[in-house]
Design a protein around this nucleic acid. Structure first.
Length: 473
DNA sequence: TGAAATGTTGGGGCG
DNA sequence: ACGCCCCAACATTTC
């Protein structure tokens, strides 16, 4: 047993430090066989999105380099995990598989099945928590039920306190010498024609080193002002750690630990940690309600009459709604694989309330275009905005895209960056170009309906319609 | 982490 | 000096 190799199956835990599964594997003293499986057997709309494939390519590349520095090699295989694991067990003579838990409903089903199948064959299976402060089934209210309100949930989490995995002594790993691997490039994870990911590389450095760089930059430059600055999409006020967290290149335990090193926690650090809390809450909800990505959490929304309007949906996706803050957000998303959180709320409110289009359409678009697309966060937050989720925004909370722009991007910095055809408009009209005089529009080289669209809907009318429709519930 | 409508207050202009 | 009105600023209610 001692000399038999052990398969370390990497999934959404693409790091080597503070990695409970890797540490446990090392502690056995057995030769480790690091494996990544590209599993495209995922149910229909939830295949990994295009933006995430770009990220995955670079993250796997980075992970392999880090492994090589320790004497290992990442084995890449594509296909059904069951078949691949069987093959690798056979090829290597391994009798153990270690993995870090995933929490998507289909992943839970898949892993449960795999566990059963392999245990029957006498294979030693162990799974670990490498990506959450708390297991999603762990936090319960006094009645023993899952929380439905964030503040109470997070209070309980804080009272309980996350348990940090302690790693006795970081022994250096033994690796299994060699096994056939597919070449990463043959997976065609990155776009070629057109190469829409050109802008991605300027913003992102996927992989563990990139994650730590972002964390350190955040701690030194942005943490103290986070609470206020995070609301301004024109500033670089957030951590931009979300894609790293999604791929497990850094863990929330590491963030927690790093922030507490800078003690005492100020209100900015607390508000940042509460965002990590929202992530926990989303996983908690998805676990309790596996249909969260498809069905409204609140039953009464099942009968809600959403519009069908492919043309409007496409204009929203392309950032051509005629509302500058909405269009800026959608274009930032397309060009960088990411969108500022304040703007995510605005564009989501616009889709569901101004256009009355189903939140699932927005969810699918985000799934395909966000590098940080995360099933739990994506589903829970879309439902939150649409008003049908747990602890959701009340139906009458409708963002005014003009006021939001004026309030959080008063100088129009964000608009001018992503909607350059409006850049010469004055601050007075940059968030509402249709109110500018002919003279000013001409001066700024803007021809409404030609160089920049007229508003797709009228705000006041759309608001009235949405209130009416929601009130009928 | 909403916006708009409605209500209240108080200062200042003015006859 | 006084009452009246206007309106900005803020508070409260409503959707």
């Amino acid at each position: 047993m001692k000399n038999l190799p052990l398969i370390l199956w990497f999934r959404q835990d693409l790091r080597l430090q503070h990695h409970p599964t890797f540490e446990a594997a090392k502690a056995t003293g057995q030769p480790i066989l690091p494996l990544y499986i590209l599993d495209d057997d995922t149910p229909a709309p939830w295949k990994m999105g295009a933006a995430q494939r770009w990220w995955l390519y670079h993250s796997l590349h980075a992970l392999n380099k880090d492994l090589q520095a320790q004497g290992g090699n990442l084995i890449l295989r594509r296909g059904s995990p069951s078949q691949i694991l069987k093959n690798v067990l056979k090829e290597s003579g391994a009798q153990s598989i270690y993995w870090s838990r995933c929490y998507e409903p289909f992943a839970i089903a898949r892993d449960t099945e795999l566990k059963k199948e392999f245990i029957e064959q006498g294979i030693n299976i162990k799974s670990f928590n490498a990506s959450l402060l708390f297991e999603p089934w762990e936090i319960k209210n006094q009645q023993g039920h899952p929380y439905k309100i964030f503040t109470q949930f997070w209070k309980k989490c804080l009272a309980q306190g996350p348990r940090f995995p302690t790693f006795a002594n970081t022994t250096s790993p033994q690796f299994y010498p060699h096994l056939e691997s597919e070449a990463l490039t043959t997976w065609r994870l990155t776009p070629t024609h057109p190469n829409w990911a050109q802008g991605f590389s300027e913003l992102w450095q996927p992989g563990e080193a990139g994650a730590h760089q972002k964390l350190e930059d955040f701690c030194t430059d942005r943490l103290t002002t986070y609470k206020e600055a995070r609301n301004h999409p024109g500033k670089h006020g957030t951590s931009r750690l979300s894609p790293h967290l999604h791929f497990g290149e850094i863990s929330p335990h590491q963030l927690w630990h790093r922030l507490h090193q800078l003690s005492p926690l100020n209100s900015s650090a607390e508000s940042y940690l509460s965002e990590i809390g929202w992530r926990e809450f989303c996983y908690h909800l998805l676990y309790a309600f596996p249909l969260l990505p498809e069905r409204p959490f609140q039953e009464k929304f099942t009968t809600f009459q959403w519009q069908t309007d492919d043309k409007a949906l496409r204009l929203w996706q392309q950032g051509k709604t005629g509302y500058p803050i909405v269009d800026a957000g959608m274009r930032e998303l397309w060009q960088t694989g990411w969108m500022h959180n304040r703007v995510r709320m605005i564009v989501a409110s616009f889709l569901t309330k101004h256009l009355l289009l189903p939140w699932q359409e927005g969810e699918k678009w985000f799934w395909n275009t966000l590098v940080d697309a995360d099933m739990a966060n994506n589903a829970a937050n879309w439902q939150w905005v649409a008003g049908c989720g747990a602890d959701a925004a009340p139906y009458f909370r409708i963002f005014n895209p003009i006021l939001q722009g004026e309030k959080f991007d008063p100088q129009g910095v964000y608009i001018r960056r992503w909607v350059p055809e409006l850049k010469s408009l004055s601050n007075t009209f940059i968030h509402k170009p249709w109110q500018a005089s002919q003279a000013e529009l001409h001066q700024a080289n803007v021809i409404l309906g030609e160089t920049y669209p007229l508003p797709l809907v009228n705000h006041e009318m759309a608001r009235g319609l949405a209130l009416e429709r929601y009130r009928q519930l």
